[in-house]
């Protein structure tokens, strides 16, 4: 740790001495580079080498000849995504749901994080935090059955214990489209808000206490402190999380959109996203080239979006840009 503080010191020195120093510095850093090596090797093997496999999206893949020897197929593999009338619907669903998830998770996450950090009792704080995080750790299959326990037409909690006792007509949830945008956002928030909340709590804990003390002396109230200190300090975290999420805006959470609506055909207009569409279209055909084509588009769009959003952030406030 002490080394890192000294390192950025020497800058402008005569060339010869500087080269010597640089050599010396390099030698000193060898252990650090060595420690980095396993990580780099891991990334190379696990993340970069497989990227060459992306060419399979442009090939007529045959498992016997392998990815690289299979014949080229041009853009043929991409056609199935665009020739269907559902193309607009699945892109719309994917993007809009993800935007909604990003916004709702951000607002609720920050709100909950602020509330939890204000709790003074240490035990209570831990309990709230864990309770909010807990759904994040549950498998989506289980989540889908928890929702089913609420929404089942025959035995569901909402129909049996809420609507029927109130004398209302029970609702066939899995065939009525109009409720699902709300249900999906609700379930997703319930499941994932704990995670973003945790990150915001960490960020808030990192804010210098002296800032609050100074604000108190100047007579700032709780809300002013939140508005003037907490939120501005969270901006870098918000931007980082936002950028990460924007990069995955073309990727839908398959489990959420496939399992929770129980793959009900009548809901496809509001539940069909790119991932579920690809799954349903290719389950029987099993064409790896076509599946990769879909993944290729998702990644490219995600990359472009992250790049563009970062460009905008850099224009607006250079300090907060990620790269």
């Amino acid at each position: 740790m002490t080394q890192s503080k000294r390192s950025p010191a020497a800058a402008a020195k005569p060339a010869a001495r500087s080269r010597q120093r640089r050599l010396y510095r390099l030698r000193r850093w060898i252990p650090a580079y060595l420690m980095m090596l396993p990580g780099l090797v891991y990334f190379l093997i696990n993340n970069y080498i497989p990227m060459t496999g992306l060419v399979v999206a442009f090939k007529k893949y045959n498992v016997r000849t392998g990815i690289y020897a299979s014949p080229w197929n041009g853009l043929h593999n991409f056609r199935f995504l665009f020739t269907t009338g559902d193309a607009v619907i699945i892109v719309r669903n994917t993007v809009l749901y993800n935007l909604a998830f990003i916004v709702v998770n951000m607002i609720l996450g920050i709100l909950l994080a602020i509330m939890i950090t204000e709790v003074k009792n240490k035990l209570a704080k831990k309990v709230y935090q864990s309770v909010i995080l807990f759904p994040f750790l549950i498998s989506i299959i289980i989540v889908s059955y928890i929702s089913f326990a609420f929404l089942s037409a025959d035995n569901g909690l909402i129909n049996r214990s809420l609507l029927e006792p109130l004398g209302k007509e029970s609702i066939s949830w899995y065939t009525e489209k109009k409720y699902w945008p709300f249900i999906l956002i609700f379930v997703n928030t319930w499941k994932t808000v704990g995670y973003s909340c945790l990150i915001y709590i960490a960020a808030i804990t990192g804010i210098d206490d002296s800032l609050y003390d100074a604000a108190k002396i100047d007579g700032a109230g709780k809300f002013q402190q939140i508005w003037k200190i907490t939120l501005p300090s969270l901006v870098p975290t918000i931007i980082t999380l936002g950028l990460l999420n924007v990069g995955r805006i073309f990727h839908a959470n398959f489990g959420l959109f496939y399992q929770v609506p129980m793959n009900s055909g009548s809901l496809f207009d509001v539940t069909n996203v790119i991932d579920t569409y690809v799954y349903r279209a290719l389950l029987k055909i099993g064409n790896i080239g076509m599946a990769s084509a879909a993944g290729f588009i998702q990644s490219v769009v995600g990359f472009v979006l992250v790049y563009l959003s970062n460009l905008i952030v850099r224009k607006l406030s250079p300090d907060d840009a990620m790269f």
Binding site: H76, D86, S264, G265, R280, I285, M290
Partner: peptide, 24 residues
């Protein structure tokens, strides 16, 4: 004809079970 078959399979999934169970 894999492009057509993929699209047809996706459409079939959308309708055939909802219609086939009498729900719609």
């Amino acid at each position: 004809y894999e492009t057509e078959l993929a699209n047809l399979d996706a459409i079939r999934e959308k309708y055939v079970y909802a219609i086939g169970s009498g729900a719609v």
